[in-house]
């Protein structure tokens, strides 16, 4: 009984937090500032090099809610459009961004790899990365 209650309480907590969620697009510290349009271009692999550094966009798993939010809010493209886009790009030898399992891995990746760029929940943010863009629900 107590366990059940705990779960209910914690879920309520999460939902209450998400209501006021803030998300950030992060990049390696050495990355210069880039615009939202540039972010979109990077994630669509229209820009691959910035300042002679290969950019490495990182996305989450396809069904991840954050990824869906990012696509809706930052890329402003529907799932169908993205699918069409990547199908076309496939023939040019371009593949969708590397997908990571978790926001932690994205964070670790971004810290380590120069040119890496990803998106995480703002709660997970730490000082070793550079925030390029922020948005809220």
């Amino acid at each position: 009984m107590v366990g059940v209650l705990k779960i209910i309480v914690s879920s309520l907590l999460v939902s209450s937090l998400s209501l006021a969620s803030e998300y950030v697009v992060i990049a390696n510290k050495n990355m210069k500032n880039i615009s939202k349009a540039q972010i979109k271009a990077i994630f669509l692999k229209k820009i691959t090099v910035i300042d002679e550094t290969n950019v490495v966009p990182l996305s989450l798993q396809a069904r991840d809610s954050l990824r869906m939010k990012f696509e809706k809010d930052v890329l402003r493209m529907s799932f169908t459009r993205l699918k069409t886009h990547w199908t076309k790009q496939h023939y040019k030898g371009l593949r969708p961004p590397i997908s990571m399992q978790s926001q932690q891995s994205i964070l670790a990746f971004v810290k380590k790899v120069e040119g890496a760029i990803g998106y995480i929940n703002a709660d997970n943010l730490d000082a070793d990365v550079k925030v390029i863009y922020r948005w809220e629900d």
């Binding site: 990571m100 399992q101 978790s102 891995s105 964070l107 670790a108 990746f109 380590k112 890496a116």
Partner: peptide, 15 residues
């Protein structure tokens, strides 16, 4: 495998 890129994240996700 592309998955090996996880090494950069120290395989945090144990993938």
């Amino acid at each position: 495998l592309e998955l090996m890129d996880d090494l950069l994240a120290d395989d945090i996700d144990k993938r």
